[in-house]
């Protein structure tokens, strides 16, 4: 989908009472969700399973982006609520599909199950890593363009 079209969709959601909108086109899915007055845009492959649309409870939407210290607290208070996404292979970690495009996600973003989070490349073999859960990105532990090992933790996601 073209940036212009996505912009139009954002305007549509902003100016309406809709909380969440998902559009599938040309094999790609764009989901737009209101979050603390802002609009969050995420895209993923069309074939990905989609979490049922749900309005975000206000208390969640207002929660600040957790800092490393908060992550520790979250761990102590409820380890099971933090989900780790690990690298399935040795490769190079990319936060966006190309150097010219924005990262798939940022810390603090809320992601749906099956939403693409990053790409791991090895020998020109690309693997789009998808979130296995719906939740908030607490921490991104790998650096763009840097190597990652098999089973290395890439993201910590607080399940919602």
């Amino acid at each position: 989908m073209r940036p212009k079209e996505i912009k139009k969709l954002i305007e549509l959601v902003e100016g309406s009472s809709i909380n969440e909108l998902e559009v599938s086109r040309y094999g790609k899915k764009v989901s737009i969700r209101k979050n603390l007055g802002n609009v969050v845009v995420a895209s993923s492959s069309e074939t990905a399973a989609v979490a049922p649309p749900q309005a975000m409870p206000a208390v969640e939407a207002k929660a600040p982006v957790p800092q490393p210290k908060d992550t520790e607290t979250a761990k102590q208070e409820g380890e099971t609520n933090v989900f780790e996404i690990k690298s399935p292979m040795v490769g190079t970690f990319y936060r966006s599909p190309s150097p010219e495009t924005d990262p798939y996600i940022q810390e603090g973003d809320i992601v749906t199950a099956n939403q693409v989070l990053c790409i791991i490349e090895a020998m020109k073999l690309m693997n789009e890593i998808e979130s296995e859960v719906r939740g908030r990105i607490v921490e991104i532990l790998a650096e763009n363009g840097k190597p990652v090992e098999y089973d290395q933790v890439l993201f910590k996601i607080e399940k919602l």
């Binding site: 399935p88 090895a122 693997n127």
Partner: peptide, 10 residues
């Protein structure tokens, strides 16, 4: 296994 995927492109 996933760890061997990088061999296939060869």
């Amino acid at each position: 296994p996933s760890s061997n995927a990088g061999l296939i492109p060869y």
